[in-house]
Design a protein around this nucleic acid. Structure first.
Lengths: 185, 185
DNA sequence: TTGCCAACAGACCGACCGGTCTGTACAGTA
DNA sequence: TACTGTACAGACCGGTCGGTCTGTTGGCAA
């Protein structure tokens, strides 16, 4: 499910395709997911968020957060290229397809993004003096999503590298503090 | 068409819905767009890119590019809120739904993004000394897309404001030059 | 006036969509 | 051993999808 969502989005995958992938007949599905495709999607979103949070928890603590983010982006680049520029962020596709009526899905996505931002913000705060940790976290998530998107349609990791090359130096200057206001803890 | 694409994506809209919106019967469509839905989508994408480029051309020249971008983002925020958090970037949704097999669509999208990046990069270069104009352009497009995405699912412009508040000061320091390496022309 | 062809209109098509419904297999209980 | 309720299986449903096909119209050439 997660995989298919990542590739084609919620409307793009058929229930039958999902079930075929999972080698599961259709009948039993509605016992476990009475909400049908929507509930399935919510579960997949939550799973993906949990995975991503786990990855961030592995990369972020201790190290220089910018270095950790560079590693994160590098991984995403590899994943994208390895999938032949099919796999993107599993949250983003569903996010853009969803309408305001899809309350459950939007809630799951909003919670997911908030959780990711919170984790990044926490890492910035822990790494030292930082004024606008929440803003930086939102910027990074945005840059990540946007970079992935551009790279996907371009069929090349070049846009991601461009974004990284522009963003990380800026982040370093911000995090390491302007020379006249240095502080570390 | 553009509107519908923006709201629900390529797979999310039915051809019948598009035609009903346009008050056009189905028959004549295939005279003008023998390629069917795909060709229609490509045309819509190109139209949107042209519109966006026109907007940028209106905002960017002359002024401080960062101020122009702030205006641009503010407009996007207004549009998003005014649509009840339905309308996003018309390119992004289709971009994420598309697979590598959709050659024509991906090409149109890649060209579109490249054109937008080029316009931004040009503005940076024109505005003064700048090392990595292409990188900054890619970063801004990425941040824009990602911010829009987060704001949409959150049902609030707050994420966009966060991103803007983090990005624009960074851009200013970059564009106005580090204090020990100032240069203007 | 007549013949012709591009432009258009919408009825129609098979395929497939998400979802439901009946039937079955099989634990746990007495 | 007989009973029962849950978990599963897949045939089946109406609706809608993207796309095609047969008219019909209306301007233009002769």
């Amino acid at each position: 499910m997660g995989n298919a969502l990542q590739h084609k989005g919620l409307h793009g995958v058929g229930l039958s395709e999902i079930l075929a992938d999972a080698d599961t007949p259709k009948g039993g599905l509605y016992h476990h997911f009475p909400g049908g495709k929507t509930e399935l999607a919510v579960a997949a979103i939550e799973q993906q968020v949990a995975d991503l949070c786990a990855l961030l928890d592995k990369l972020l603590p201790g190290a220089d957060p910018v270095a950790a983010l560079e590693l994160w982006i590098a991984r995403a680049q590899q994943g994208l290229a390895a999938s032949g520029f099919q796999r993107g962020c599993p949250l983003a596709t569903v996010a853009l397809e969803s309408s305001a009526q899809d309350v459950a899905i939007r809630q799951a996505l909003a919670d997911g993004f908030a959780a990711i931002r919170a984790r990044l913000a926490l890492a910035f705060e822990a790494s030292g003096r930082i004024a606008n940790a929440a803003g930086l976290a939102a910027l990074i998530v945005a840059a990540y999503e946007g970079a992935l998107l551009q790279a996907r349609v371009a069929g090349s990791v070049a846009p991601m590298e461009l974004v990284g090359a522009a963003l990380f130096p800026l982040l370093r200057t911000q995090l390491q503090g302007p020379p006249d206001d240095q502080a570390t803890d």
